[in-house]
Design a protein around this nucleic acid. Structure first.
Length: 893
RNA sequence: GGGCGAAUAGCUCAGCCGGUUCAGAGCGCCUGCCUUACACGCAGGAUGUCGGGGGUUCGAAUCCCUCUUCGCCCACCA
């Protein structure tokens, strides 16, 4: 790898081959060795999915964690997989069929399922390859699919166990129905959304002709299925009407007025039309009063034959208009009010949910939720951000039974078998397919429905490891550690995994749940296909590189915040990451080009090791800074504060290492001064550390540079390099202070140059006086550095008396004078210094006030008071120096 | 309707348990530089009554209350 490096980092030609190389060397596979493990289950993307920024965000975070822990020496398993995604996938294939003018019913169940498999096999799991493009270091050798044979076996095992335990039951209930997908949905799959609607006040004439009763409803069309009117038992307005009948308009039916405690007398008219087949509250009322229920809709939510002729076949919304019109025509429409309320929408297709009475399978959740809640309460489950735990607990506390049957064809078929013989009545859940009835020998049929997709997902932490077999993987990698996911699927998936883990493995599947934010545009709208405000991660990878994408994601999102990106301006979002990668690349190019072979070891017992007394001030400074960065970055990664890790590394690499240290060592590297070998040792070592610290965030550029460092075995990968430890030689506060003064001095002189418009190439003199001992030592030690970086013709440490020029005062009270001769603009300089002086005086005044305050001096901690005193004296010293300067320049009036 | 969170430079965000990081970063902006690692760069600079109002405190961007505005979760007022 000795080819000269290009002056510009070229991710497009570097990343893909590198990923290949990682795969070849099987660097991401869990080994089963080592004492400590780190396991992450990837939230399995839908098989049909294409990578979007949400995946980019989610998987980048997981990869950062996994790479970090892998370098810390743990046996890491990041297990990828794909989800068969029942409704979503079936919808995709049905859409394809529609183009051929066919429906799934034209094909029939078996052919249709075959068709879906064909599609899934052909398109493959594209998304998994796309995940590789962003650098995801998953253990691909263990990739699963939720419809794989072994995972399906786990699903079936779980169903049968729960069935036999009485935790799965079949019932006739009002469920959430999607009239477009033609299937039942769970409560979680019905997304509540606020909608602007109306409240229609309808008059129902009393059967005895004595008047009417008014009901208020948001869904007038359902009146066709009304079977009662309910009022609150204590509502005096209606006591006289209780038990009376009304003529239900349009239907020719008569229904009773009943009393039910569930009615709120304050809402609407206080009287409610009761439609047990189409409203959850009404369903309960119907049960309490044994009311008949009339289902007036077909599965597609068109008016069915149970309704009067005039409305049959109408879509529910057309029916609504017609019913309202009919009431108007009859003079029975009292009024219409605007009314905002929450309406359920299908989470896959946004269609408004229709509550529908049907036979479905349910899981009794309370017994599963209890231990899952207890585990959280006992502190075994940690949420990041913490407050998300409250949502988890709240959901667990109010858990409702889970409707798990779906009227789809694509999925795990419900393993329940019914005997066809009417006299037999045999029904059972079975681990194996039944050909005939074990009771009577008759033919059996299997339940037609399939299971909710999440019924396989909630098992993934163990089903993907071979359960119910007692595999080695299961023993080694269950339970896992961290789950990284979007908050949207907290209930769908996370909470249920905890329940399943406890029920079937006796242990929760992970101890930490990191819930990251959502990717949004600058108007804070969620990125989505329909809004057209998405960003294609692959386009970003192509234009800016995967590292840039990852850097942006990581640094743009703190714990508990969303990731805001501008789809209209990729440059603003991703340039910083690309520039950083390029900066690193060029720093590496420079360092590698100047090492020229093996370097002396910096520490240890090896021969040629650099002795401490060989280190210059700058060397000690960068080592101390490097060490501080090791500590800060490690802690940030551990605390999931990846943005902190990113910024600590950005600052260390760009400002400390590139802007100062590399500039500082140039004379040594070029042989202009002594100590080139020490500089090489230190720069190689600190750069190596920086690469390793940054690798979890920017794996590609760090790997490609790290492999080129001297004395690397050909097969060594940074992804397995040991995580840097804090250095014994650091911390070195004195080096930080001393070099800090050097930086102040150089910056001060540069400012003067800029202020006075000194030509960039023009060398100037500088005289520093009034130095503290620390400054004096530092300036002597870094004389060459200061001269070079401030472009001085000479740097004198001593007395500035008698000369006029521009002055910079440093924090220790030393002042640097740049004699400018005729170039000096006295008035301007006075203004400059006066401004500086006034600013200090104001600080001093405040500080005096603070320290004169008895309350402060007596109540504040002694250390705080001492610190404040020190500040005051520093400022006073600086102000004195400035005043003297002003006097000498004749600025003082 | 219940619960929770956020409001800091033009933009995106740090600022953890109250006292210096005299309020920071990146991007953007202004000035000068193609200085032999990097113009995806270097150097220098400007920018904020820390959402409004009250309070606690010797001291508040940081704690409490309140208002305003946004956001999230939950919810069978039809």
């Amino acid at each position: 790898m000795s080819t000269p490096l290009a002056p510009q980092y070229d991710p497009a030609n570097i990343e893909a081959p590198l990923y290949h190389w990682w795969m070849e060397h099987r660097l991401f596979e869990a080994s089963g060795a080592g004492s400590e493990r780190f396991v992450i289950m990837m939230p399995p993307p839908n098989v049909t999915a294409n990578l979007h920024m949400g995946h980019g965000l989610n998987n980048t975070i997981q990869d950062v964690l996994v790479r970090f822990e892998r370098m810390r020496g743990k046996d890491t398993l990041w297990l990828p997989g794909t989800d068969h995604a029942g409704i979503a996938t079936q919808n995709v294939v049905e859409k394809l069929l529609a183009r051929e003018g066919k429906t799934r019913f034209d094909l029939g169940r078996e052919a249709f399922v075959e068709r879906v498999w064909e599609y899934v096999d052909r398109t493959g799991a594209t998304i998994l390859d796309q995940l590789k493009a962003i650098g995801s270091s998953c253990d691909w050798s263990r990739t699963y699919f939720t419809l794989d044979e072994d995972l399906s076996r786990a699903v079936r095992e779980v169903f049968v166990r729960l069935y036999e335990k009485g935790l799965i039951y079949r019932g006739h209930y009002l469920i959430n129905w999607c009239p477009r997908c033609l299937t039942a949905l769970s409560n979680e799959e019905a997304e509540k959304e606020e909608v602007d609607g109306h409240l229609w006040h309808l008059r129902y004439p009393l059967a005895d002709g004595s008047g009417h009763i008014t009901v208020a409803t948001t869904r007038p069309e359902t009146m066709l299925g009304d079977t009662a009117i309910a009022v609150h038992p204590h509502d005096e307005r209606y006591t006289a009407l209780l038990g009376k009948l009304v003529d239900l308009p349009l239907t020719g039916r008569q229904i009773p007025i009943i009393a039910d405690g569930g009615i709120d007398p304050a809402f609407g008219s206080g009287a409610v039309k009761v439609t047990p087949a189409h409203d959850p509250l009404d369903f309960d009322i119907g049960k309490r009063h044994s009311l008949p229920s009339i289902d007036i809709f077909t599965p597609e939510a068109r008016v069915s034959d149970a309704a009067p002729d005039a409305f049959r076949g109408l879509d529910r919304f057309d029916a609504r208009k017609r019913v309202v019109q009919a009431f108007k025509d009859l003079g029975l429409l009292e009024k219409v009010e605007n009314h905002r309320h929450a309406v359920g929408h299908c989470y896959r297709c946004e269609t408004i949910i229709e509550p529908r009475l049907s036979d479905q399978w349910f899981v009794r959740m309370e017994p599963l939720a209890r231990p899952a809640l207890a585990a959280y309460r006992k502190g075994k489950l940690r949420f990041i951000p913490e407050r998300r735990g409250d949502e988890y607990a709240q959901w667990m506390e109010n858990i409702r039974d889970w409707c798990i049957s779906r009227q789809l064809w694509w999925g795990h078929r419900i393993p329940v078998f019914y005997c066809e013989a009417s006299s037999c009545g045999f029904v059972a859940a079975s681990r194996t397919d039944l050909a005939q009835c074990p009771a009577c020998g008759g033919t059996v049929r299997q339940d037609e429905d399939v299971l909710d997709t999440w019924f396989s997902s909630w098992l993934v932490p163990f089903s993907s490891l071979g359960w119910p077999e007692e595999t080695a993987d299961l023993r080694a990698y269950y339970p896992g550690n961290t789950l990284v996911t979007a908050p949207e699927i907290l209930f769908f998936w996370v909470a249920r995994m905890v329940m399943a883990g406890l029920e079937f493995m006796g242990e929760i599947p992970f101890d930490t749940v990191y819930l990251h934010g959502t990717v949004r545009d600058t108007q804070h709208r969620k990125m989505s296909k329909s809004l057209g405000n998405g960003i294609d991660p692959l386009e970003v990878v192509e234009r800016y590189g995967a590292d840039a994408l990852r850097y942006t994601v990581v640094s743009g999102m703190a714990v508990g915040t969303d990731l805001i990106l501008d789809p209209a301006d990729l440059e603003s979002s991703f340039a910083a990451g690309r520039n950083f990668a390029n900066k690193l690349w060029n720093a590496g190019r420079f360092i590698l080009g100047n090492l020229g072979g093996p370097v002396r070891p910096l520490a240890g017992d090896r021969p040629g090791v650099v002795r401490k007394d060989e280190l210059s001030l700058a060397d000690r400074w960068i080592i101390a800074r490097c060490d501080a960065t090791v500590i800060a970055a490690t802690e940030a990664y551990e605390r999931y504060r990846f943005n902190d890790a990113a910024s600590a590394l950005y600052h260390f690499i760009w400002s400390d290492l590139a802007d100062w240290y590399i500039e500082q060592i140039k004379p040594r590297l070029y042989g202009d001064v002594e100590g080139g070998d020490v500089a090489r040792a230190v720069v190689a070592s600190t750069f190596d550390v920086a690469l390793r610290l940054l690798h979890p965030i920017m794996p590609f550029v760090t790997e490609s540079l790290w492999q080129r460092l001297p004395a690397r075995p050909p097969d060594a990968s940074i992804s397995r390099a040991p995580w840097p430890r804090p250095d014994r030689r650091a911390p070195d506060p004195l080096a930080l202070r001393e070099f800090g003064l050097v930086q102040e001095l150089v910056s001060g002189i540069r400012s003067i140059r800029a202020d006075y418009g000194v030509q960039p190439g023009q060398p100037i003199r500088a005289v520093v006086s009034g130095m503290s001992r620390v400054a004096s030592r530092a300036f002597k030690a870094e004389h060459v550095t200061i001269t070079r970086l401030a472009k001085l013709s000479s740097l004198e440490l001593g007395d500035t008396s008698g000369e006029t020029g521009a002055t910079a005062v440093l924090s220790d009270g030393s002042s640097a004078l740049v004699p400018l001769g005729d170039a000096i603009d006295l008035e301007r300089e006075c203004e400059r210094l006066q401004g500086e002086h006034d600013r200090l005086e104001e600080l001093i005044e405040n500080q005096n006030g603070k320290l004169a305050n008895q309350q402060f001096v007596s109540r504040a901690p002694a250390a705080v008071v001492e610190r404040e005193r020190q500040k005051l004296s520093d400022w006073r010293e600086q102000a004195d120096v400035l005043r003297a300067k002003l006097g000498r320049l004749g600025c003082l009036k």
